[in-house]
Amino acid sequence: MQFLIDNFPLLRSAFLTTLSLAVASGLFALVLGTILAGMRVSPAPTLRGLATFYVEVFRNTPLTVVFFFLFFGIVEIDLQFPSRFIAAVAALGLYTAAFVAEALRSGINAVPTGQAEAARAIGLDFGQSLRTVVLPQAFRTVVPPLGNVWIALAKNTSIAAGFAVTDLTAALQRLANVNADQILMVFFAIVLGYLVITLPSAWAFRAIETRVAIVR
């Protein structure tokens, strides 16, 4: 117990780093993923092609490789992120956006075609009907898959530990080596840190799911 108290400042800052990594990249992925999903169902073939290309590239590339590219690849063409934290958010967000887009596309496909046709019939253009009619219904059906994506993202943040971001996993490495006699306690503290993020998220997603469920 004394051990946990002694290392509380490190554990707290590591926890906050993990949480802010997850939240920042989650928001980024949600926005980008929504745009991509919209592009994938759009009538313009160029937009559809671009979005499909993006999704296939990022969905099929290991996250570590995305990290490596953003940290050590783009330097070769004289590009650089202002900080390693932002680079990590970008890597996580770009990667997760592909999964958000796919989850959302399945939701869009679940909205009956008549809805979009009716929206077009009353004079809304493609963007308007997507925003006001299709997407709100799509989001309601994809709460469970988005919950999965979010929890996967929260755990994927641990990759950042290998890229100079002091998150919970980095704290695990640091504490485990310094405290060879307390390894189980270190694991306990770190796992608890992740659970504090993921378990309430799971409950929250279940609550949202019940609340917004479409009664048919």
Binding site: F72, R84, G162, A164, T166, A170, Q173, R174, L175, N177
Partner: peptide, 29 residues
């Protein structure tokens, strides 16, 4: 730069706090 969790990294943290320490998981990075 050093590796997270290593003794040398901790030494820099404890004894040379003026240095800006960056820690990866392997030395090749």
């Amino acid at each position: 730069c050093s590796v997270e969790g290593s003794t040398p990294a901790q030494n820099i943290r404890d004894n040379f706090p003026e240095a800006e320490l960056i820690t990866y998981d392997v030395y090749s990075k």
